[in-house]
Simulated scan of single mutants.
Amino acid sequence: MRRAGVLTLLLAVPSSAVVRFHCSQLVVERLDPLVNPGSIPSSHVHQIVGGNAFNATMDPSRDLPAESSCTTCQFSDDFSNYWTAVMYFRAQNGSYKRVPQLGNNQFETARGGLTIYYMQDAIYDRGQKSKVQAFKPGFRMFVGDIAARTLTEAARSRQLTYVCMDTWTSRAPETMAFPTRRCPEGIMTSLRFPTCWDGKNLDSPDHASHMSYPETGTFESGGPCPASHPVRVGQVMYEVVWDTKQFNDLEWPADGSSPFVWSFGDATGFGTHGDYVFGWKGDALQRILDAPCWFDTNCAKESNSTLQSVEAMNSCSQERVVDEDIDGWLDVLPGGFHVDHGRG
């Protein structure tokens, strides 16, 4: 296993960055180089954004910026890969239709994808005083539990939530299960990665053990890191807007349950999860983290970074490696998953 020196906190200055940016869709298919490395296809469908060096293997020693010819992310030096499972609508006749992603607020013309945050403190705190060092090449992590089917199981991976969007800017209330009512503007999922690192490992066998949530409290409340994971790092967060409104006029389950299901068969929503592989070029992310800015300025000028246009983001894509239908009305989920409604 590759190792890095202990992540040290930098000297405090008046403020540092919280950055928010979008990444358009790179590809949607059954590949997962983190959990199912080398498998073509992987077990279930994912939506992937970021650098186009993404493939089925993604060896940690690879130089992603050097191997990528483009990225779908707004920051032109970000060749990382970010991905999640894919949401499907299950019709009353038992068939499935993939739910597409929408460009998030301010990125409506983007080709689906995710919105990414890097934060040192709570997003509403402009101070951002907790200065941290950027991740290193080879760093990767996973958040969530694909097998979670109850609230108790889901709570082990805190802060993975859903918002039923009544308006385009809705961000509350948040739930940990699929919304069970029709959402006028779609469903937003938010995935907040752990913020405490063991200070040594760039990865772990389960891609999660080298990271931890705060021992008590939350990232936003400044909860302390456990002794086993003493290094407090910035929080990576994904926001994904799912265009569920196009299914609002179809028949929904008579029992009041949600008609949506993840691509691995979870109908509860508790199994939502996300994957992250670091791939920023040089010190680009460190410059952003060090910059005195807040996300409403894009932090580009303050960090001497280059932003791509949405058109440039959309122009970067990748051909599917796995040849299968994932977009039509399907009799079964790709990979043959059966719907799991949990154990109550």
Rank of each mutant, 00 (worst) to 15 (best):
D283H: 08
D283T: 14
D283C: 09
A284Q: 06
A284E: 10
A284C: 07
A284Y: 04
A284S: 14
L285A: 05
L285G: 10
Q286M: 12
Q286K: 07
Q286H: 13
R287E: 07
R287P: 03
R287K: 15
I288Y: 01
I288K: 01
L289F: 15
L289P: 06
D290K: 03
D290P: 00
A291P: 05
A291G: 13
P292H: 12
P292T: 14
P292V: 14
C293F: 12
C293L: 13
C293E: 15
W294A: 14
F295P: 13
D296K: 05
D296L: 07
D296N: 14
D296I: 09
D296V: 07
T297F: 05
T297C: 06
T297K: 07
T297E: 13
N298V: 04
N298M: 05
C299F: 04
C299L: 09
A300C: 11
A300E: 15
A300G: 12
S303N: 09
S303H: 06
N304Q: 14
N304T: 13
S305I: 08
T306I: 11
T306W: 03
T306D: 05
T306Y: 06
L307S: 03
Q308R: 01
S309K: 02
S309C: 02
S309H: 01
S309R: 02
S309M: 02
V310W: 00
V310Q: 01
V310E: 00
E311F: 00
E311C: 00
E311T: 11
A312C: 00
A312N: 01
A312W: 00
A312Y: 00
A312H: 00
A312R: 02
M313I: 06
M313W: 03
M313Y: 04
M313V: 06
N314V: 09
N314M: 14
N314K: 09
S315E: 12
S315N: 15
S315A: 15
C316S: 07
S317D: 03
S317K: 06
S317E: 02
E319H: 06
R320N: 05
R320T: 10
R320W: 01
R320H: 01
V321Q: 13
V321E: 10
V321G: 01
V321W: 04
V322M: 04
V322P: 01
V322S: 03
V322A: 03
V322K: 02
V322W: 01
D323T: 08
D323W: 03
D323P: 02
D323Q: 10
E324R: 09
E324N: 08
